[in-house]
Structures are given as C-alpha cells and as structure tokens.
Design a protein around this nucleic acid. Structure first.
Lengths: 347, 347
DNA sequence: CTGAAAGCGCTAACAA
DNA sequence: TTGTTAGCGCTTTCAG
C-alpha cells in the first residue's frame, strides 16, 4: 500500500541519487541517460517505500492536471445520464485522465451554471464536458470558452462549440422502416408535445420515410401528447379508434409506448398480432420488460460520452483542433433494437 | 469572466501591496489587521483583473484539496446509482467540496479496485466515498484506510469502516403493514433467489410482521425467483394458483411486481380489487407508470449519498471521529410510497 | 498595519 | 551519466 508521506526526495536519499534522477526514471524521460543499475535501484526503493506521486505538485509544475470536468445538467433525473457519465469515465480512464463531476440544474440561472464551471476552472481541469440531459439548445456559460470543451447531447444557441448529438432522423427512419419492412401500410405516430428538436425531427422523418415508400406520409395519422406513459395511453386510444386506425405504431419514446400497450390491451388488441409497436430511447427497464419486449431505437448515450471525451482529450493534447469540429455537430447513430413487438399485419 | 493567467502576485503589484496582504484579504484571515481601504482596493483590483485562485497551489500548500473521491461500483447499470451520486454531489457542493468520480466494476479484481483508489489518493482527495450498487458485503481495497472513508449501501467483510445502509427490515415491515392495515389476512411474498442480505431480511421481516399481527407468519406462502420481471411473473403465477392463494402480495422489488401485474391480468385478477400488491425500490419508471400505480417502498439512495458525504466531511474537518461510527452501520429508513395498488380485500 | 521569505512536491533547464 | 537549482502559485511564520 502506498504511503502518502513519501516524496521523491525521500526516494532520492534512500537510493543515494538526486531528485532529478528519481524524477527521470520514474517518468521514463526519453532524453535522460541513466544506467540500468541506477534505474533498477530507484524503482526498487520507490516501490519499497511505497512512493506514489503527488499529482497536485506535478500539475502545478506542468500546468496539466489530467483532470476533466464534467458538468451534468440534472444528473440523476434520467437513467440516460449514467450512460453518458460511464462512457466519459471509461474513455477518460483509458487515457489516464480522471473526471470531476458537478451537477447543475438545467433550470438554474446562467450565473449559477457559470459558477459551476468556475469551480472546475479553479481546479485547473484540462478540459470540460458539458452534458445536458435532453437533446436541445442550451445557453452556455461564457467561461466555458476558457478551456477546451465539448457539448454532449445538445447544441449551443451560439453554436460555436464542438457538440455531439444523436441521429434523431436516422433513428426515426429506422423505426418506421422496421414497420414498413414488416409489411405495414397503415402506420401512425404518437408524438411528443414539447418543442424540442427531437419532436420535429422524428415527425419529419416519419412522414418522409412513409412518402419515400410510396405511402401518403402527409396524411398518416399522428396524435400528440406529453411524452409520458399517461400521454401515450391517451394518444394511443385516440389513434386506435380513428377511422384510419394504424396497424403499425411508432411512438415518440418508450414511455409513450408503454401507455400504448395498455390502450391496446383495453381495446382488445394483441401486440404484435393486431398492432405492431416501435419505441424510442431503449430504456431497458421499460423496453426489455414490457410484454412482448419492445422493439425500439437506442440513444447512443454511452457513445456520446466516450466520443466527447476522446476528442476533448485530443484537443487538450494538441492532436485536434476543436474549433474545426465546432462548425457542425457530430451526429452519432441510433441503432434499432429488435425485440418482439413487430410482426406482419393481419392480411 | 475570470482570467486564468492572473495570480495573486499580479493583483499585489496592481494594488501596490504585497502578496501577503492580498492573500490575507482574499482569504479573510482573521488575525490579519488590514485597513479597510486596503481591503477594498485589493478586492476591487482582484475583481477587475478577473482573479481566480489556483486551487492546486492552495492545496499543495495547505494539504487540503477540498476534493472527495467517489468510487462507484457499476455506476450506470442501475438508476439508483445516480441518486447516490446526486446526494453526494449536492452535500459536497453545499460545503464547498467537489467530487472526483471513478467507476469500477463490482466484479473487478481487488487489485484493480485498489488501483482506482490509488488514483484518488495520488490526487490527494481529502476523503473517499465507496459506493456499491447493491446492499451487500464487499471486500475493500486496503489502501482505502489511508484517508477518511465511508461505505455507501454495503458493509465491509472486515467491518471496521463507517457504513450507511438502508433499513431493509423496516421497509419490509412497512410494506407488509400496509397490506395488513388494508385488512388482508392472506398475504404472500415473492422473494428473490440471490443470497444477499436483503433477501433474508425482507423474508424475515415478512414473517415476523405477520406473526406479530396474529397470523401464521411461518406458514405464509412464499415463492422465490430471480428478481426480474420474468421471475416475478413466474413466481406470481405459482403463488396465485396455490390452494392458499394470497389476496395481498409483497414483492421483493418493483420489477418482480411488474411481472406480478402481468400474471394477475392473465389470471383475470384485477389490481387492486382482486389482488393488492406492494413492491420495493420505488423505481419511478416502473412504480409510477404501472397501472394502477404501484405502492412500494423507497430506498434512501439520495439520503445515503448525502449522509455519507456529510459525515465524511465532518471527519475530514476533524469534527467527527469516524472510527467511533464504524462499530455499527448507520441505518436509514425506507419510507412507504403510497400509490394505488392496495385496497381492502373482497369480503 | 504590512511585507519578506520559506516551502508545499515536483519538473526541467542547465551544469558538471 | 548525474546533480543543482529555479520556479509552478499559494499560505504562513516571523519581522518590521
């Protein structure tokens, strides 16, 4: 076990060499010419004494902390947040970095979010990940600009910071495509009522995909409600009792799909025999546990966290110029996760 | 916006005073006698220059980083993890501390978990929170002992470290009590098959509560399965088709309860009219979204994170002696969350 | 009331 | 091949 009271100096005297030598061998400095015997001795002694470097001192000297700040808007409110953090943490660890996290509320004032960033800056993090929990436009604290930073799951209103977001359109196309592929021609959409990019993009992709398949996308049935289970239930009841009730249903998210399941059951409709359903989000707790398992589209949260971290580190290490990537957000794909809620429509 | 290139020295020359003076006024050192005018001037200049302290340098000098390490076993696999982190983060922020998080796998080798702790120690965190994602016994890395630390949601096999855990027994008693209170006399339990403390404690509390209410706790029906939706479904089918089928059902967790909902539906049983159900965990995504809403017992994850952090900081600041608290784990209560899945049994 | 200077543990020019 | 030394930015003792 390492001893926190042993410094490079102690190792030096114990080994009968200078601190420079110790520093050189322990850091494997390339240009240092040190005899193999000395190297061995230093390493052995360091080991024996349980020496561990003081990263604070190193950082003070080198102006590099090896720490990344992660400010997360509303960390625990959604299970997605954890995936972003996990992706970031693992990518960071793989490159020898650590993560400092600060939670902030999406509804907090700009000043308070700026203070959160400030705390990270005072600790001299090498870069900052700013993660929001919905894919939407955010107003960023200005001091974010003082170190390399990247935005996760949103784009900035100003729009000159590197960002990574999910491919809403591709995901929606995959979802609708799965229904089409199974042979459905009467396809409906249960949409969200919030004015977020996902709402518009998924709707647009829904209509476009149908139209491209030779159906009348503009006339396809759409019902909107709040994107919760209850909203899904209500919207589903409406859409399933329409004249042009669909046999294939694309839901804005898994929660709405869960509501649709209940509505279908109440209307005597069996899934997937009478009604095929596809969701969005792949919230495991819901999607995998509904009966039958819900076919849905997964959001690349882990991947976004990892991507952002990789590129942030590249920028910190001078391997990438983030300003170049800032022109357009990077879009990560949303893969379809097939379970058992889709089948061919009844003839 | 603060300027990362301005140091105390720059403020000093700009204000025409020494760095000592600047340090004294900015830190509001109690014994420093400095004229109000000087104070004002220093503050104004610091503000103008956008001075922000370098916490690394401060830490190096004071041997206090104001950082807490949080090692979290399997951060994102359960939604609970986020609540622990949030509780810890908010408590830390309230006292001027920040959190460094490291994710580790519960199944990782002791050495690898030790290396994770080591990384935190190299960064000279003032204390460490070690959070596991299930309430169980863990084998801790030995180097954890070198700074104040507290265990969240588990107890150590060695058992000489301060720990905070949920009140399994109290929670189970509350759950069963709610069924009893509604008038049920035939109460069953869907238990987990894992050999974790919760499995034993909830079972024991289940039987004891019934017995204390004058029923035959030892004879009460219990079926065990893996604690997932499918397991709950299977166990529920078995228990509900028994000779002594219960009218009130206590489920090991919300996922099993979700399975029980399906089993009940298939057997033509309406919840709560024909069958009252109570869960455990309060996984919002499930409990609040089932129909009818599931009455369940909430695990105090947020509270445990906050409690652990509070006491860890107290220890770091010398206000508490953690070794005294290490004798017995602290137990935080699990409140009953009432929704709509319990009613009186049919006469 | 204010300042000079030592030193926290380390790295990296420069010297030897 | 190895050692001396000057800081990184700050706090704090000790002197004015």
């Amino acid at each position: 076990m390492s001893n926190r009271n042993i410094g490079i100096k102690d190792v030096a005297v114990a080994a009968g060499v200078s601190v420079t030598t110790v520093s050189h061998v322990l850091n494997e400095v390339s240009y240092a010419r040190i005899s193999p015997e000395t190297r061995d001795k230093v390493r052995t002694i360091a080991e024996q004494l349980g020496y561990g470097p003081n990263r604070l001192a190193q950082a003070l000297r080198t102006q590099r902390t090896g720490m990344l700040g992660l400010v997360s808007e509303d960390i625990a409110t959604t299970p997605h947040a954890g995936r972003i953090i996990l992706g970031a943490e693992e990518a960071a660890k793989a490159r020898g970095y650590n993560l400092m996290i600060i939670n902030t509320s999406g509804s907090a004032s700009l000043e308070s979010r700026q203070a959160d960033v400030e705390a990270l800056l005072e600790r001299r993090v090498d870069g900052i990940l700013y993660a929001t929990m919905y894919h939407r436009n955010v107003e960023l604290p200005a001091n974010l600009g003082s170190v390399p930073s990247v935005l996760v799951d949103s784009v900035a209103t100003g729009g000159n910071i590197t960002a990574v977001i999910p491919d809403e359109e591709g995901g929606a196309r995959a979802a609708v495509g799965a229904l089409l592929e199974a042979g459905h021609t009467r396809v409906g959409f249960l949409n969200n009522t919030d004015d977020v990019p996902a709402t518009r993009q998924r709707l647009q992709a829904f209509r476009a995909t149908l139209t491209e398949a030779g159906l009348d996308g503009d006339a396809a049935p759409v019902e909107s409600e709040v994107s919760e289970v209850q909203g899904g239930y209500e919207a589903a009841r409406r859409i399933l009792t329409r004249e042009d009730a669909p046999t294939g249903l694309f839901c804005y998210n898994d929660r709405m799909a869960m509501g649709a399941y209940r509505a279908a059951a109440e209307l005597g409709l069996t899934i997937p025999a009478d009604l095929s359903v596809v969701g969005f989000d792949d919230q495991e707790l819901i999607a995998a546990n509904l009966h039958p398992g819900l076919t849905t589209v997964a959001l690349p949260h882990y991947e976004m966290g990892a991507w952002a971290t990789e590129h942030l580190i590249d920028a910190v290490e001078g391997k990438t110029d983030l300003t170049l990537m800032a022109l357009h957000p990077t879009i990560l794909s949303c893969p379809l996760v097939r379970r058992d809620s889709i089948t061919a429509p009844r003839p």
